[in-house]
C-alpha cells in the first residue's frame, strides 16, 4: 500500500493537480548558442533537460556514414545530481541506451534525413533534474533542439506522460506517481491525433489504453502550442538580428 493518497475521492493528486492538468511547462531555444548548432532547454515541473545538437556535419567516423541519408545519433547523459539521492549513471547503462534508441527511432520519422546524405546529426541530451519519467522531457527538448539547429523536419513531436490510477488516467505524472503507477509516454506529431510514440512501463489493461491515449494526445497538443510559441519567439529574435 502506498504512503501517499495518489488520487483522492475529491479528484486531487499528490501535488494538488486535477487528473488533466499539466505541470508547469517552460521551454526555450538557443540557450547554448555558442556551444552547438542548435540548443534548447525544457522544464516540466522540476524536471529539466538540456539538448545540444551538432550537425548536419561531416561524420567523425567514416564507418557510421550513410550515402542515402543523414545519420541521427542520440546520446543521453543523466547528471549524478539529477535525482533526489545522488546516483552516478554511466552512458552504457541499458536504460539510457534503450532511451536513446527509442529517441532515434521516433525522430527518424519526422526528420527529413534524405536531404542531407553523408552527414551525421549528433544530439546530446543532458538530464539535469528528473522528476518522474524523463522520456517526455527528452523528446520535447530534442524536438526544439533539432528545430533550432535548422534540421529540416516534417513537424513537431510533442510528448507527455500518463499514469493510470486504477481506471483514471493522470496527465504528466511526477516521480511519486511514476514510481507507484503503471505509466505511458506518448508522443504526437504536429497537430494530428496520431501517436507516433507510445511506450508503456509495466502492464496496462487493454480497455484502459484508449482513455489514457486520449488524455495524453490532449496534453501533447497543449505542449505543442507552448513549444510552437517559443519557436516563433526565437524566429522573430533571429529575424530582428538580421534586419539590424
Amino acid at each position: 500500500m502506498s504512503r501517499y493518497e495518489i488520487y483522492s475521492p475529491e479528484g486531487l493528486r499528490v501535488d494538488g493537480r486535477r487528473y488533466n492538468e499539466l505541470r508547469y511547462f517552460k521551454c526555450a531555444l538557443g540557450t547554448h548558442a555558442h556551444a552547438a548548432d542548435g540548443s534548447a532547454m525544457v522544464e516540466m515541473g522540476t524536471s529539466q533537460v538540456v539538448c545540444t545538437v551538432k550537425g548536419p556535419q561531416e561524420p567523425q567516423q567514416r564507418s557510421s556514414m550513410d550515402t542515402k541519408k543523414a545519420v541521427l545519433r542520440v546520446n543521453v547523459h543523466v547528471a549524478p545530481f539529477s535525482s533526489i539521492t545522488r546516483t552516478k549513471h554511466t552512458s552504457n547503462e541499458k536504460q539510457l541506451q534503450e532511451l536513446s534508441m527509442n529517441l532515434e527511432e521516433t525522430f527518424a520519422d519526422v526528420v527529413l534525413a534524405h536531404l542531407a546524405p553523408r552527414t551525421e546529426i549528433i544530439v546530446d541530451l543532458h538530464v539535469l533534474a528528473q522528476d518522474g519519467n524523463i522520456m517526455a522531457g527528452c523528446v520535447n527538448a530534442m524536438c526544439l533542439g533539432l528545430i533550432d539547429a535548422g534540421v529540416p523536419m516534417l513537424d513537431f513531436i510533442a510528448s507527455v506522460g500518463v499514469a493510470l490510477a486504477d481506471s483514471v488516467p493522470l496527465l504528466d505524472p511526477n516521480h511519486i506517481e511514476c514510481s507507484e503507477l503503471p505509466n505511458l509516454t506518448v508522443g504526437v506529431t504536429g497537430k494530428s491525433n496520431k501517436a507516433s510514440l507510445v511506450i508503456a512501463e509495466k502492464r496496462i489493461l487493454l480497455d484502459r489504453i484508449k482513455p489514457s491515449l486520449d488524455l495524453a494526445i490532449m496534453g501533447c497538443k497543449t505542449v505543442h502550442d507552448i513549444m510552437d510559441e517559443q519557436v516563433r519567439i526565437r524566429l522573430n529574435s533571429l529575424e530582428d538580428r538580421i534586419k539590424r
Binding site: 529539466q48 545530481f81 539535469l128 533534474a129
Partner: peptide, 26 residues
C-alpha cells in the same frame, strides 16, 4: 539553477565552453 541540489552553478565562456556544476551532500 538546479532544484535538486544544495548548490549549483553554470558558467559559460564566449568560445562556447559551457559547464554546469551541482553539489549534493549526504
Amino acid at each position: 539553477i538546479l532544484p535538486m541540489t544544495y548548490g549549483s552553478a553554470r558558467v559559460r565562456a564566449p568560445d562556447g565552453s559551457d559547464c554546469i556544476v551541482g553539489v549534493k551532500a549526504k
